[in-house]
Design a protein around this nucleic acid. Structure first.
Lengths: 292, 292
DNA sequence: CATAGCGTTCGGCAACGCCGAACTCACGGG
DNA sequence: CCCGTGAGTTCGGCGTTGCCGAACGCTATG
C-alpha cells in the first residue's frame, strides 16, 4: 500500500540544485544519518495523521528497526517527533510548530503582509496567498480565505510548480529567458491539466505578456477549473522576493474582470514591495528579462 | 546540574535550550550527528532573524566549521535551512513551515478549533489560544487575537511553564496531587514575577480552587500586568487533552468579570471536548485529584 | 601590502552509525 | 491452553563515515 519506493539515495521531496546536466551527489560533504532522519520526518509528514508504527517507518525508510528506533528517539528527544498514546504511533512533534512559526518570522516578510492579505481577500472575495521566492520556486507562506469562498486545499511552505501557477509565473517573468530555460530544465514541463503550457517557447511568450500586464494568469493550468492571478514583489536589492496571488473558480471570472483583478493584485504586490523597502513594479526596469 | 533521578529517558528537556556547557548525553540509543543537526536548527531558531554565518553556528555548536558545514548542507538539501543572499547567512528553511503546518494537522485537534477560537476572541475581546497537553506541558498550537487587542508576544508550539500559566494550571488541575508534585519536581517552581506561586502547597490549594470553579486563573503569575483565564478539555479517554485560555491586561479585568469570563472559557472548552468526542467538565468525576 | 575573517576542500584516524540476532511482551487463533 | 505472529527493545561487533585540523581561495579592512 505504500507506493514509496525507498531508494537509498538522498533526494527526497525537496528539489535538488543539481545544475549542469548530471545529478551530481557530493555525498562526501553531507551527513548520511542526518539525511535519513529528515527523510524519516518526511515519511511521517506524508503518512496518515493517525501516525505510523515503528515498523512502518523502518520499512518505508529502508532501514532496520533498530536504526529507525535510534533515529526516532533522537528526533523525539528534541520534540520533532512524538508518539501518540495507544500502541506507539509516531506523528510530527510540537517543536515543528514552533520552528515553523519562527521560520515564518525569519522570512523576508513574515506576518507583515497578513493585514494586506486580508484586505485583498475581502476586496476580491477570493482566497489570497503570498509566496516567497525560494531559489526560484514559489513557496506560499500565508493564506487568507475569502469570505464564503470555497476552501481550497492550499498547503503552506511547499515548493510549488513555477510554470503552472500564477505566483510562479509572476516570478518567472522577472527573470531572463535564459534563467527561465534553466529553471524549466530542472523541473521539466509536465502537463498538470489539459491547459498546462508544456512548450518552453509558448511559456516565454506567455511570460512576456505577463511582463506587459504587470501580472500573471494561471488559466486552469495547475488544476481543472481553477483560475489564479499573481503579481511579483521586489526586495531592497531589486530582486524578486515573492508574489501575491488570488485563487478562484474559473466560472466566476468573466474575461473583463481579469484585468481588474490583475490591477488589484498588482497594487497589493507593490504595497508589499514598499514594506520590504523594495521598488515597485512600474519603477523597475521592465526590459529585464525581455530578451530579444 | 541535575542528576535526573527519573532515568527513564533522555527526553523531556527540550523546553529549555541547552545551557552552553557541554551536556552531550551520549546515550547509545540515540544518533549523535542527528542530535547535533537539531541542535543546529535550534541555534538558528534562537538567533537573529537576519541569520547567522557558518562560523557563528560552528562556534555556538561547539564543532568544527567543516562538520557544521556538512550538517548545514544536509539540512539545507531538505529545505530545513536556507542561506540568505548577501554573504551566506543561515536562517530556517521553508520546509519547516510545511512541516509545522502538517504537524498542526496531525495533532489531536488541528484547525478544528479555530472557528471556536475566533468566536471566543470576538466575544471576550481578548487574545484567545488553545494549547494541547504535551507530556503535561501546555503547548499552544493556535491563536486568535481579539479585535483591537494588544498583540502579545505569544509563540506557538513551545512548551510553556505549567504552574504559571492559566492553561497549564487548568491542565494540572486535572491531575492527582501526586502527579502535580511530580511535574513540579521536574520543572521546579521558579518565580517568574512577584506573583508567581512558588510553594507547592499553595499551588495545590490554588488548583483545588480551580477545580471548584471549572477554570484556572493566572493573575500576573507569568508576566507582570498580564491576566489569563483557562479551562481544560478532555479527549475520548477522559484524559486531559489540552486547554483553552484567554489573555488580557490586568487593569481591564475587574474582579466581577473574572467569573463571567471563566464561565465563557469553560463553555468553549466543553465544546472542544465535544468535538474531540470527549466528556465535558461537569460530567467528569471531579473527585479526581481532589485528594485530602 | 599585510592581516583577518569568511566559506570551502580534503586526508586520515577511530568513533559511531548500522545491521542482525536475540529478547520481551501483547494479542489471538487453532 | 499454548504456540505463532507481530509489535518494540537491547546489544555485540564490523566497517562505514562522521569528524577534526590543516590548507586553500576569497573578500574586505587595517
Amino acid at each position: 500500500m505504500e507506493p514509496h519506493d525507498s531508494s537509498s539515495e538522498v533526494a527526497g521531496a525537496w528539489l535538488q540544485p543539481g545544475s549542469g546536466g548530471g545529478g551530481e551527489n557530493a555525498s562526501r560533504y553531507t551527513v548520511r544519518s542526518v539525511a535519513r532522519a529528515m527523510r524519516l520526518m518526511e515519511i511521517v509528514a506524508e503518512g496518515p495523521s493517525a501516525g505510523q508504527t515503528l515498523s512502518d517507518l523502518a520499512r518505508a525508510l529502508g532501514a532496520s528497526k533498530s536504526t529507525t528506533l535510534a533515529l526516532a528517539r533522537t528526533l523525539g528527544a528534541h520534540g520533532l517527533l512524538r508518539d501518540a498514546r495507544p500502541g506507539p504511533r509516531y506523528t510530527l512533534g510540537t517543536a515543528l510548530i514552533r520552528l515553523g512559526d519562527i521560520a515564518r518570522g525569519q522570512l523576508p516578510l513574515g506576518d507583515l503582509c497578513r493585514p494586506l492579505l486580508s484586505e485583498l481577500a475581502s476586496m476580491t472575495k477570493m482566497t489570497s496567498r503570498v509566496a516567497i521566492c525560494d531559489d526560484g520556486y514559489p513557496v506560499f507562506i500565508e493564506r487568507v480565505d475569502g469570505p464564503g469562498s470555497v476552501r481550497f486545499y492550499t498547503p503552506l511552505g511547499q515548493r510549488e510548480i513555477p510554470y503552472a501557477s500564477a505566483a510562479g509565473k509572476a516570478m518567472l517573468a522577472t527573470m531572463t529567458d535564459a534563467q527561465v530555460r534553466a529553471m524549466c530544465e530542472q523541473t521539466g514541463l509536465k502537463a498538470r491539466t489539459a491547459h498546462t503550457i508544456t512548450d518552453i517557447d509558448s511559456l516565454l511568450a506567455n511570460l512576456d505578456l505577463a511582463r506587459g500586464n504587470g501580472f500573471a494568469v494561471d488559466d486552469e493550468e495547475d488544476a481543472e477549473g481553477i483560475f489564479c492571478v499573481g503579481a511579483a514583489f521586489f526586495g531592497h536589492d531589486g530582486a524578486c522576493a515573492g508574489a501575491v496571488s488570488i485563487t478562484g473558480i474559473k466560472g466566476d471570472l468573466p474575461t473583463w474582470r481579469v484585468k481588474e483583478l490583475g490591477r488589484a493584485v498588482r497594487r497589493y504586490a507593490d504595497q508589499v514591495s514598499e514594506i520590504l523597502g523594495g521598488v515597485r513594479y512600474s519603477e523597475r526596469d521592465r526590459a529585464i528579462g525581455a530578451g530579444a
